[in-house]
Amino acid sequence: MTTLTTPDRIRAQRTPHRPDSTRAARRAFVAPLIVFLALMSAVPTIFSLVTSLTDYKVGADTPVHFVGLANYVRVVTSPEMLATYGRTFLVVVIALPFELIVGYLIAKVFHRVHELRGSSLIRTVYLLPVMLPEIVVGLLFGYIMNTRVGVLGFLLSAAGLPAPDWLGDPRIAIFSIMMIVVWQWTPLATVILYGGLLGIPGEVREAAALDGAGRIRSVFSLEVPMMRKVIGLIALLAGVQLIGTFATVLVTTQGGPGTTTTVLSYEIYRQAFVFFNTGYGSAIAIITLVIVILLSQLLVRFAFKED
């Protein structure tokens, strides 16, 4: 032992019982995944970066020209594109707080009954929409919200209420899309918040109650600070989910009426694979990826940081 040089000793202390964690073992375990992921993310990105500087159209025989940053300029100056970003932003800033607040209220109810029999089954049933394919949810609500044969309109008129054209009225179609998305994803926020509530020790609650904290006080001065990470995690997962909204739009409104429900992911699909504006579509995709990577890096580190 006394013959160990300083770096060896440090290593020996740090890894006291890991005799054969050699570099070769590490490589053999970790390298295949890293190589695969790097290939699948870096190579396409290079392809896309190059294409975004051209007027390339998939499937067209026209010669390809280098157009510099023209596609990017078009993305940030086109009123249609800015409206698409705005619409996506609107979906996030309305649906995300809704999912958090309603999710929190429902989580409180579930937490109140968490020791009672049957509560686990109730939670599972409540959570089912999260596990379903987005496309099935979209198809189902397309039927339910149909003006002619949909059951939602029928129930509303039976109750003497006006039944709007959920998916056909340009003023409300985007909110109908939000309703569908929120129906599917609020349960995700709920279960994560419920887990957070379970993680607050009973003694802490009692101490707060002894200090005279009322119900409302204890929400803001106890639960919110203690669930800081959990809330960050929901913001991350729900934000990513909302920006990625695609299948719901594809099978209900196809971006219409007009372009009133054309959100970002749907616009990328339309430009790149319906109109075959591959160069332009690539530019939109790259700008979107940069925005999402910056936002999610912030949130990933915040939400998963070790204490």
Binding site: P44, V58, L236, A285, L289, V292, S296
Partner: peptide, 17 residues
């Protein structure tokens, strides 16, 4: 963070590859 990327933005580059 790869899991956090919007699939439709990822698939454009991948399609070309």
């Amino acid at each position: 963070s790869l899991r956090m990327l919007p699939p439709m933005a990822v698939v454009v580059p991948v399609y070309m590859m």
